[in-house]
Design a protein around this nucleic acid. Structure first.
Lengths: 190, 190
DNA sequence: GTCTATATTCCGATAGAC
DNA sequence: GTCTATCGGAATATAGAC
């Protein structure tokens, strides 16, 4: 049954991810989370004993999310371009909510994370890269996409464009992200 | 004359930049800097009263550095490819010293920075983008480079590849950065 | 310019009542 | 599961001696 426990825990996870992407892991405290959720410091510690536990759970939930997206995309009877745009739209949403992408945020924190968490981060990143890589392959086979590098390399190029694109947009403005997004699609579709 | 003051101040600036790029602004303290330089907490505060002052000075010094690089590159009697590779090599060095690029690190901290510092960050980023943009234009005119987008857009694409490339390399390994770097050059030189 | 010493605030975390 | 209360430690910062 859906208890109040799970609601609070889920709310902490969502807010934690938001804060990591907005200000970074070391720039928010359990007190910040407690205040925003209208609970107390100790309640957050009940669900996630240490801040490192919270971080790890957030990575876990992203792995779970992207696994699910991967399964949906594999079966969906839509053009590869639509699948890629689904992923792109996630990045566009980040720009509008003052966040950077999870992977970029984690990369900045990476050196301060415990080894166990780092391993999960590697899993997450490979998962996302593979997801894009497969979509690119599918699009090439369909005749939708044109690119000369390998699908893996093209995936690296596109994901770095998107990831740093949302970071750049924070500084130089949202239009630069749109420019990047459209350029990728244009180059891909010839 | 080069006094001991300037040496210490310069050492703090260099170490501060290193730490920002390695672990992020909120993950190191004045105590960390003091310990590594063999001085005391208060000495750091003497040179930079607040941590925000240190951050701003680091941005200033990067603006100064890139301005100088821009002037040197403008006059240098070498192919555009060599000029671009000079910039690329700076990014390759980051990977080897466990850093991410200044702009990426700052982008992660951005929401926690005072307005005055943010303005200077905008200046820095535009400076670097313009530097690459000019080099790309020069290479196209020379017949060294081939690209279809505008120089500005191509600059955005390449800089995001590099910036997120060093971030990704932290997680998935250094070879991914090399792959990205070589792919950019290959696409550019046809 | 660097030191000792200290003030203040905040953070992550825990014990124990409800 | 959430609360009150509190501890130990670390961070930013300042005053004043040298």
């Amino acid at each position: 049954m859906a208890t109040k426990t799970n609601d609070t825990k889920e709310a902490i996870l969502l807010l934690g991810a938001e804060l990591i992407q907005q200000v970074g892991y070391h720039a928010f405290s359990y007190a910040d989370i407690a205040k925003k959720l209208g609970i107390k410091n100790a309640a957050v510690h009940y669900h996630f004993p240490g801040k490192a536990d919270l971080y790890e759970s957030i990575v876990d939930s992203h792995i779970s999310n992207y696994t699910k997206i991967g399964e949906e995309i594999a079966q969906a009877p839509v053009p590869a371009k639509a699948k890629l745009e689904r992923i792109f739209s996630r990045y566009r949403n980040l720009v509008d909510s003052d966040r950077i992408c999870v992977i970029g945020a984690i990369a900045a924190d990476y050196k301060t994370l415990p080894g166990k968490t780092r391993s999960k981060v590697v899993t997450l990143v490979e998962l996302v890269l593979k997801l894009v890589e497969k979509t690119l392959q599918e699009g090439k086979k369909n005749g939708e996409f044109f690119y000369t590098a390998s699908a893996r390399v093209q995936s690296l190029l596109i994901m770095t464009n998107l990831s740093a694109g949302v970071q750049l947009a924070r500084i130089t403005g949202k239009k630069d992200f749109e420019t990047i997004r459209l350029s990728i699609l244009k180059q891909l579709t010839g």
